[in-house]
């Protein structure tokens, strides 16, 4: 863990942010994840301050965040920034981000014919929406689960958008367990679940005390052992199990074997921050 913290501290860019690779352009997502991971690290106080300053400096006038400084439109990474800033200090920037989140939503289908067609081809209720990656798009699992976690972090738990976001996640679950990126079915078959979407959706539902057959099936998917071993997959599983207070010994042993000499996983500050959150 200390080597991973060393890597994160060393890979912070001069502007205070982190990229998806050492020396890469600073993005809001890896910066927010690193900020969440480093709040436990007493030696990282100055890094945390610089990260907060970076995030605040690129907040847009509408209260949201683009994905990086050059991005001139607010989108899904707003949820990361709100979560990270709210977790590290209560501030006006996070509150303005919350307002943006509550105002934004994925496309909602209301035409009955279209609703029926979408139900047939994708097996979803298109009247229910969550959050999208970018404005004017359909909703997807990752930004929806992330927005719910951000809103939980600022204690927004009873808002209608929150209730609909939870319904969205439950509606889009794959019947056999877990979540793909959005719809569970496409034309002729169920889509396969993905580990990051399933972990994040489960974390979001857990934050709002939702436990049912859908979450149990998804947990079984995450617990399966026949998957391709990557640091990213193990990091997301381990973070979820940590949140659940479930045993993480096996995941941590796997992560240890995948950790690089520089202390990172995949040389990627984002993956490293996710892995670190499973031990904090």
């Amino acid at each position: 863990m200390s080597r991973a913290l060393d890597f994160l501290r060393a890979s912070q860019n001069a502007d205070g942010g982190w990229g998806y690779k050492t020396g890469g352009m600073s993005f809001v997502e890896p910066t927010s994840a690193a900020l969440l991971a480093l709040t436990i690290d007493a030696q990282a106080a100055s890094h945390v301050q610089r990260a907060r300053a970076f995030l605040k400096s690129i907040q847009r006038a509408d209260g949201g965040w683009g994905i990086a400084a050059p991005d001139d439109a607010s989108g899904w990474m707003t949820a990361w920034a709100v979560w990270a800033l709210a977790a590290s200090e209560a501030n006006d920037a996070a509150r303005r981000g919350v307002d943006w989140l509550l105002e934004s939503a994925g496309i909602r289908v209301t035409d009955p014919n279209q609703v029926a067609h979408v139900q047939k081809t994708l097996r979803i209720d298109a009247r229910i929406t969550g959050w999208s990656w970018q404005p004017n798009d359909a909703a997807w699992i990752f930004p929806t689960a992330l927005s719910l976690l951000a809103l939980d972090a600022v204690n927004v738990r009873e808002h209608p958008r929150v209730r609909e976001g939870i319904q969205y996640l439950l509606d889009r679950a794959i019947p056999t367990g877990g979540w793909n990126i959005g719809n569970p079915f496409m034309v002729s078959g169920n889509l396969p679940p993905t580990v990051e979407n399933t972990s994040l959706a489960l974390m979001a539902l857990r934050a709002f005390d939702i436990e049912n057959e859908i979450t149990v099936r998804a947990q079984k998917y995450l617990a399966r052992e026949n998957f391709t071993v990557t640091a990213f997959e193990w990091a997301w599983r381990a973070w979820y199990w940590k949140k659940m207070d479930a045993p993480t010994k096996g995941a941590h042993a796997a992560l240890e074997t995948l950790q690089r000499a520089d202390g990172s996983w995949d040389g990627n500050p984002f993956t490293t921050a996710i892995a670190l959150m499973s031990v904090k």
């Binding site: 993005f27 994905i67 989108g75 999208s132 990656w133 970018q134 798009d137 997807w140 990126i181 959005g182």
Partner: peptide
Amino acid sequence: GAKYGFPKNTLHM
């Protein structure tokens, strides 16, 4: 994808 999402549906729109 970091900008346009997964599966980059924003551009399909």
